[in-house]
Amino acid sequence: MQKSSTKARSSMEKGLSSRRNCEGGYPRGNNPNQPIYQTPKVSCFLEALLVLENTHSLSLSLSLSLSLSNHFGLKMEAVSVAKKRILCLHGFRTSGSFLKKQISKWDPSIFAHFELDFPDGIYPAGGKSEIEGIFPPPYFEWFQFNKDFTEYTNLEACIDYLCNYITTNGPFHGFLGFSQGASLSALLLGYQAQGKILKEHPPITLFVSISGSKFRDPTICEAAYRDVIKVRSVHFVGEKDWLKLPSEELAAAFEDPLIIRHPQGHTVPRLDEEAVGKVCSWIRHGVVLQSGINGASAEIEHENTSEGETKQKESEVKEAVAMEKMEAEAVAMPS
């Protein structure tokens, strides 16, 4: 990461130095009718921003954007950093639209810095859906399996489809999945870590699992979970979920997982203020600052963080969430 950051900064600085063409830096131009984006100053600024397209780190992009805006004397409001993308995979015999509706229950501040993509599974539901009468069809499934979840049909075709989708529509920064979608997402992460798939795609660095589980085929387990998966992950585990224990087993396959428990069953849970604060903190510290939360443990506790540091972080997150809500309300108010 440090090497890529240095390389990107060096590229940016080289580009900037080669374009200095007057004592005052970058002239605005002599033509008052010239479009602002064609003036030498802004044109050079936009060219320098192209460096950001090759940075997969949100923190590095923000840092370079700040440097560029200061260098050119432009307001930060003019700097647009593309949102990182998260691929969201729905559960068995539901749909991308249904998962989107489920996630809409969460505080919007959680994924404020991301663009969420909700594709449908590639196979029409082969039987009754549990959400019939609750949410309109059509319904889809990613692959089929037996009742013991040890034999799978169309799994390889599904993996090929998703790898092509990710390559074509990416890059993606993270995965989010519910039930079958979470199990599939974790499998893709394990395979990528082993160099089996997505070799040309930047490493996926973030995973949100809701009621996920590991595959039980020994051959798949040996390939996907042979080593601890070093991807930052948060796992939502329901006390009444029939996949409670499998969800915990999946979390154990990841390095330093953050586990958030809730009293509900097999569903995308509603999050209280404490859970929202913890997830926002996990997102911000891991993605914006590129530093993982040390010692994340069950029931959203951090064993390696002092009580004072934890309270301070929670206070900062709550203030940030409150500020974002105030700004959103202000924008929504009629003028």
Rank of each mutant, 00 (worst) to 15 (best):
K199Q: 15
L87C: 15
F72I: 02
D120K: 06
D148S: 15
V51D: 06
V237T: 00
R232T: 10
S104L: 03
W142K: 05
T6W: 12
C221R: 12
I204E: 03
A193W: 00
R28K: 05
R9K: 11
S18K: 12
V234R: 04
A182H: 05
R284W: 10
F118D: 00
S10Q: 15
S80Y: 03
F236Q: 02
Y37L: 05
L198C: 09
K3P: 03
A157K: 11
L52P: 01
W282D: 02
H201C: 12
I86Y: 11
I220S: 04
S247I: 02
A193C: 01
E316M: 13
L62D: 06
E329K: 15
S59K: 13
M12R: 08
K105P: 00
C22H: 07
L60S: 10
T153C: 10
K14D: 11
G265H: 11
N33W: 10
P263A: 04
G121P: 07
S59L: 00
L206C: 04
L250Q: 00
N54Q: 10
N164Q: 14
D217L: 08
E314A: 15
T167Y: 12
E47W: 09
P257G: 07
K313W: 05
H262V: 06
W142N: 07
V317A: 12
Q264T: 13
E303M: 04
R19T: 03
F114S: 01
P334A: 15
F114T: 07
S185L: 02
L116E: 06
E13A: 13
E248W: 01
E23A: 14
A112E: 12
T153E: 14
A78H: 03
D160S: 15
F207K: 00
S233N: 05
D107V: 00
K244M: 08
A332Q: 15
E141S: 13
S57G: 10
W142R: 06
P246D: 03
H262Y: 02
Q38Y: 07
G29N: 11
V231F: 09
L87W: 10
N30L: 13
V276Y: 06
I210V: 14
N31R: 06
V276H: 03
E115P: 03
L189I: 02
K147Y: 09
S59Q: 08
